[in-house]
Amino acid sequence: MTSSELTLVDWRTRVADLYAAVRAAADPAEGHHLWRAGRAELFATHPDSPTREVVEYWPYDPALRFAVPLLGAEAEDRDVDTGADGTLTMRRIGRVELPAPVSESLDVWWLHQYGGGIFVPLRDGTAGDGSYGGGRYLLDTAKGAWLGGDDRSLVLDLNFAYHPSCRYDDRWRCPLAPPGNTITARVEAGERL
């Protein structure tokens, strides 16, 4: 293991710790404040930061936080070329229905790499006009991004939507939102350009 591998482990540990603090917060808006401050510190100081830019956010909107059941969906495997990291395999394990004001459906994926993990990307009506054109991520449990849930449901808070690393640096190739994760609604929450 090299020092760069150790710093990547440190990055992932800090992200997981950050999400644990968010889940423990007394209220979601407080958790969002902790998340923004923690990400700002990581971006400004960590050697594995994808950027040193100051990240902009839309204001927190409590109407965009949902606890939604995981619904059935036809299984589908999708291989994604991630450049030097090889191929990542995603399997659709279900879908969620987001209520108003979004009123759209998103596919939920399982990542086979990294020991597995739930992955929910999002490409909404702000893509290319307010947020990264390739979309954002809501959950990526393989890398510590988890807001909670149980054996039947997920917590999806669109205020925690964040840009993938490839938004900041072309050396990364990220899995982007496939058609079942592309919606027309403008989600003016989370990270923005």
Rank of each mutant, 00 (worst) to 15 (best):
R14T: 09
V15G: 10
A16I: 14
Y19D: 08
R23W: 01
A24D: 10
D27M: 05
P28Y: 04
A29C: 04
A29W: 10
A29N: 09
A29Y: 06
E30R: 15
E30W: 10
H32V: 11
R39T: 06
A40M: 04
L42Q: 06
L42I: 06
L42G: 05
F43V: 11
T45W: 00
T45S: 03
H46V: 07
P47I: 03
R52Y: 02
R52N: 04
E53V: 12
V54C: 04
V54K: 12
V55R: 09
E56G: 13
W58G: 00
Y60W: 03
P62S: 09
P62Y: 08
P62N: 06
A63W: 08
L64P: 14
R65K: 09
R65C: 12
F66N: 11
A67F: 05
A67W: 00
A67Y: 01
L70W: 05
A73N: 07
A73M: 04
A73W: 01
A73K: 08
E74D: 15
R78A: 07
D81A: 11
D81H: 10
A84R: 10
G86K: 08
L88N: 14
L88W: 14
T89H: 04
M90T: 14
M90Y: 13
R91Y: 07
R92D: 05
G94L: 04
R95A: 10
V96K: 04
V96C: 03
L98Y: 03
A100I: 11
A100S: 09
P101H: 07
P101D: 02
P101L: 07
V102N: 01
V102D: 01
S103W: 01
E104P: 00
E104A: 11
S105L: 00
L106N: 02
V108E: 06
Q113A: 15
Y114P: 10
Y114R: 14
